[in-house]
């Protein structure tokens, strides 16, 4: 589903954001991407939804080669992904339902199906009663749920979440995390960047730890080693 092979990413000012990063993420996985600020988590996220391109190496996401992706193909890739951010990125002058509908409209979805699809995802994230509310009328946790609903409305195979609980209190964090687990249980791949180690410890999901642009730990590699040892 996702494959990074020997990926380097450097910026025009010479800063090296990623150094020889390689990993694969398969169908149905939930993967934590951890590390301190500046470790390279967000750069990996941006590579996944083709906001940036690698300087060297290969990035493949859902069948698309991000390295060689033509600009006109980027929207096609993004329609197969859901992306969630720490700051929610909702349009303040549109209601929760309108924010979600917007994601369908821009992809050219049929007008008569939009309302039903919006209500379906709002129900999925537990906010059907908040459909007419504007972002300013919602709590942080609720806003993030709306953002997740927007990410889900196109039925993506992969959900990329960059610090989705970074702005939330503990209760809201638990709620959003549980929602992401439920979504993953439905078969959607989740890649979640976080520096909240308590959250990582709560669940036994694969963890990739980044430090100074490199992968320093991948629990899947441990699993693989253990499997090799037991064999």
């Amino acid at each position: 589903m996702i494959r990074l092979a020997h990926v380097d990413k450097s910026y025009p000012n010479g800063a090296l954001a990623l150094k020889d990063v390689s990993f694969r993420i398969g169908n149905g996985e939930f993967v934590f991407l951890t590390g301190h600020s500046g470790a390279g988590k967000s750069t990996i996220m941006k590579l996944l939804f083709a906001e940036q391109r690698p300087t060297h190496g290969e990035v493949r996401v859902s069948g698309y080669d991000v390295t060689t992706l033509r600009p006109v193909e980027i929207p096609k890739l993004r329609r197969r992904l859901g992306v969630v951010f720490q700051d929610f990125r909702l349009l303040e002058d549109r209601t929760a339902a309108e924010n979600i509908a917007f994601a369908l409209e821009v992809t050219g979805a049929r007008g008569d199906t939009i309302a039903a699809r919006v209500m379906r995802v709002l129900t999925q994230v537990g906010l059907s009663a908040k459909a007419p509310a504007y972002p300013r009328e919602l709590s942080g946790g609720e806003q993030q749920r709306v953002a997740i609903a927007r990410a889900l409305v196109n039925d993506p195979a992969i959900l990329v979440a960059d610090e989705p609980t970074g702005n939330l209190d503990e209760r809201a964090t638990r709620g959003v995390f549980q929602l992401l687990r439920d979504i993953n249980a439905g078969g959607t791949v989740i890649v979640m960047a976080t520096h909240d180690l308590d959250l990582v410890r709560q669940a036994n999901y694969r963890t990739i730890e980044m430090r100074e642009g490199s992968v320093v730990y991948d629990s899947a590699a441990d699993d693989l080693d253990e499997a090799e040892v037991s064999r």
Binding site: P71, V72, P75, R78, V83, L91, A103, V106, T107, N154
Partner: peptide, 15 residues
């Protein structure tokens, strides 16, 4: 901000 969100959810440049 609105444009960045449009791009994020897969809107084409012409859209």
């Amino acid at each position: 901000r609105e444009i960045s969100i449009m791009r994020l959810v897969g809107a084409t440049n012409w859209f």
